[in-house]
Simulated assay, not measured.
Amino acid sequence: MPIQSFLNYLSLEKKYSKHTTVAYLNDLNSFQHFCNKEYSNQSIVDVNYAQIRNWIVNLVEANISNRTINRKVSSLKSFYKFLQKSKDIEVNPLAKHKALKVSKKVQVPFSEKEIIAVLNLLDDKNDFESLRNKLIVELFYSTGIRRSELIHIKIGDIDFANETVKVLGKRNKERYIPLIQSVQKTLVKYIKFREEINTNQSYLFLTKKGKIIYDTLVYRVINNYFSSVSSKVKKSPHIIRHSFATHLLNEGADLNSVKELLGHSSLASTQVYTHSSLGKLKEIYNQAHPRSQKN
């Protein structure tokens, strides 16, 4: 079972999350379904590049974005690299494949005013869901954590003595992030309400029924609240993460420090957030440089 062996490799050796592993499986299944239909149930282990190319054309004709197609093909390429290592195939059929061109999306972060406006919306409310939602927004903005990281925070990960939260990031890498005073205050209030929920869960964030919160719930919380204060097209947890990094860099934070807080493995990943800070740099430059055109 090459596919199952590959999935085991991703989860056990590469330490990929269950969510990421499932995404790989879905991409492989998508191609296998195509092969079943077009090539009489041919196994994806035995295909050639021409057949993969036909699948790519099929995806393009179905109006799938180039970015999504590249991700699907990348999953296949990793699969064939694994099969080469395990001696199941001799040649990777995607070895010379070039990714489709994609336009770079400029993600616009929320302004500090928009963040504050959302928190003000929740300030006067004192019930379980409102405090939970406020804590979700505050944690996202004050720590820059990912959605999956927030969902899987456990009560035991909160260290009030050291004012930190332990986060389990990609590839099961742990990191500790400082908790500012305002977040700690919201945490204390929320935990009191949480203690009244009938549950055996150790996770910090729960639904009213005592179940662990889920991806769509978190997205809905962010999208709903920010829709009332922002006209930006995209309103998601990742945009708050983007805002966290951008605002820190605008205030002069060291790039390496931001990298550590975000849980990035390389500076290249963190540098995608620096383009938003160029406006601030230009403003400072224009104000300070002797030769700038001041109004």
Rank of each mutant, 00 (worst) to 15 (best):
F6E: 02
F6W: 06
N8R: 15
Y9P: 02
Y16L: 10
S17C: 09
A23C: 04
Y24S: 01
Y24R: 05
D27Y: 04
D27E: 08
L28Q: 08
N29T: 12
Q32T: 14
F34C: 11
Q42N: 03
V45Y: 14
N48I: 15
N48S: 15
Y49E: 09
Q51E: 14
I52Q: 05
N54M: 11
I56N: 05
V57I: 15
V57D: 06
A62C: 07
A62T: 11
S65H: 05
R71P: 04
R71H: 02
K72A: 01
V73N: 01
S75H: 01
L76W: 03
Y80L: 01
K87L: 08
D88M: 05
E90W: 10
E90Y: 08
E90C: 04
N92G: 04
K96H: 10
V108Y: 00
F110C: 07
S111C: 02
I115W: 11
L122I: 03
D123W: 13
K125E: 06
D127L: 15
E129Y: 12
I136D: 15
F140W: 05
G144Q: 04
I145E: 07
K154I: 03
D157E: 00
F160L: 06
F160T: 12
E163I: 07
E163A: 03
T164N: 06
L168E: 13
L168G: 01
G169N: 10
N172P: 02
I180P: 02
Q181H: 10
S182I: 04
S182E: 14
V183S: 15
K189R: 08
K192A: 11
F193M: 12
R194P: 06
E195W: 07
E195F: 08
E196Q: 15
I197Y: 08
T199P: 04
Q201D: 09
T207S: 09
I212H: 12
I212G: 10
Y214H: 00
V218L: 06
S228E: 14
S230L: 11
S231A: 15
V233Q: 15
V233K: 15
K234G: 00
S236K: 08
A245V: 12
L249K: 09
D254P: 15
D254W: 13
L255M: 11
E260R: 07
G263V: 07
L267G: 02
L267D: 07
T270Y: 05
T274C: 00
T274I: 02
H275Y: 07
S276A: 10
K282N: 06
K282M: 01
H289L: 05
